[in-house]
């Protein structure tokens, strides 16, 4: 059985083995205890730190902020957690008031966890994901280009050739043959219609010559025509300029919303809104379809999940509201750094 003394020694050793910096100080800032990690963090030996004022160890701005947080924790008696950045270092800080026997806050303990590596990894991940997304869009553009330049043109030539054959055989008196060629032309025309649909899905038209609002409006009318769903598009007249990646995200949201509305929700109408407010471009896609239980349908579509990723990667927000029988509403927003409107 461990004696109290042995237990205390054990506890101190545990604290010293702890990779997080731990400091105990009085509400006025006088340091009562630091573990090894804390002494390493401040670059000073333990005996120099004990009795010193903790605020003197921080640059003035940061000291003021910390003082405010500590006062808040002392006054409320509840712990406070926040993320802080000091030059190139990111830390997670937990500030806990320590209560004495009478219930008053006698001292304060802080735990500082270095999360720089985690933050850097997140940044890298974001960068890589963004790169992947860009590559995906480039690849889609290339496929669309090939489809348009090669297959689309050849099919046009095929239709024209068949048309010439049709008139030749008709003139020569082969009426049935002419009808058959005519039927073949219909089939090729139908194939072209499908290819065009695929083209539209693959490649958003250029946002360089046309504003995103106009492109989205065109997409809505095209989708309305091909799906038979009524699409009501509404946009603010003036929108700030946005990046190609942002405009593409809006485009993909409309496509995916429509896909969901038609394939899963069996909607008859959809409403799309585009606006700029409080530094953000907001897009919403609402349908009057069947809706779904967000908690039940975990696989509510890879498409929608990919869309969420896309918006988060662009530092935006993404949200879906739906319930059985209540339709579905998809919201996306993207921050505009450059506030120039045009």
């Amino acid at each position: 059985m461990m004696t109290k003394l042995v237990k205390e020694k054990f506890a101190w050793e545990l604290l010293d083995a702890f990779p997080n910096a731990v400091e105990l100080f009085e509400p006025d800032g006088t340091i009562l205890y630091v573990n090894k990690a804390a002494s390493f963090r401040y670059g000073k030996p333990e005996n120099e730190l004990l009795g010193a004022n903790i605020w003197s160890l921080y640059p003035p701005g940061q000291a003021a902020h910390r003082k405010t947080v500590v006062n808040k924790a002392v006054n409320s008696g509840a712990p406070i957690q926040f993320t802080d950045r000091c030059e190139e270092q990111w830390v997670d800080v937990l500030i806990c008031p320590v209560h004495g026997a009478n219930g008053n806050v006698e001292s304060v303990v802080t735990y500082t966890h270095d999360i720089t590596r985690q933050i850097r990894a997140e940044e890298r991940l974001k960068l890589v994901s963004l790169q992947l997304l860009t590559n995906q869009e480039t690849e889609r553009r290339r496929i669309a280009q090939d489809l348009h330049d090669d297959i689309g043109q050849s099919m046009t030539a095929l239709i024209l050739t068949l048309k010439a054959i049709q008139s030749d055989v008709t003139v020569a008196g082969h009426k049935t043959l002419g009808e058959q060629v005519k039927g073949t032309i219909r089939i090729v025309e139908e194939m072209m219609r499908h290819i065009r649909q695929v083209l539209y899905e693959l490649r958003p038209p250029s946002f360089e010559t046309t504003t995103p609002a106009k492109v989205l409006e065109a997409l809505c009318s095209s989708l309305a025509l091909s799906t038979g769903v009524r699409a009501v598009f509404s946009s603010q007249e003036q929108l700030p300029t946005m990046s190609n990646a942002q405009a593409t995200a809006l485009y993909r949201l409309v496509q995916e919303g429509m896909n969901n509305a038609v394939k899963h929700a069996k909607a008859t109408s959809v409403w799309i809104n585009l606006e700029y407010a409080e530094g953000e471009i907001n897009i919403s896609f609402e349908d009057d379809g069947e809706g779904f239980d967000l908690t039940q349908r975990v696989e509510y579509g890879l498409g929608l999940e990919g869309l969420r990723e896309r918006f988060l990667m662009l530092n935006g927000n993404f949200d879906i509201e739906s319930a059985p029988g209540k339709g579905t509403r998809i919201y996306g927003s993207l921050p505009i750094v450059n506030q120039k409107t045009g």
Partner: peptide, 27 residues
Amino acid sequence: SMHADPTMIRQALQSGALGYVVKQSVA
């Protein structure tokens, strides 16, 4: 044109074109 893109159609008509035929219906 290969496309029935409303933006392109608008631009073409505004720039003075009188006809706009999608390639699939060219025949």
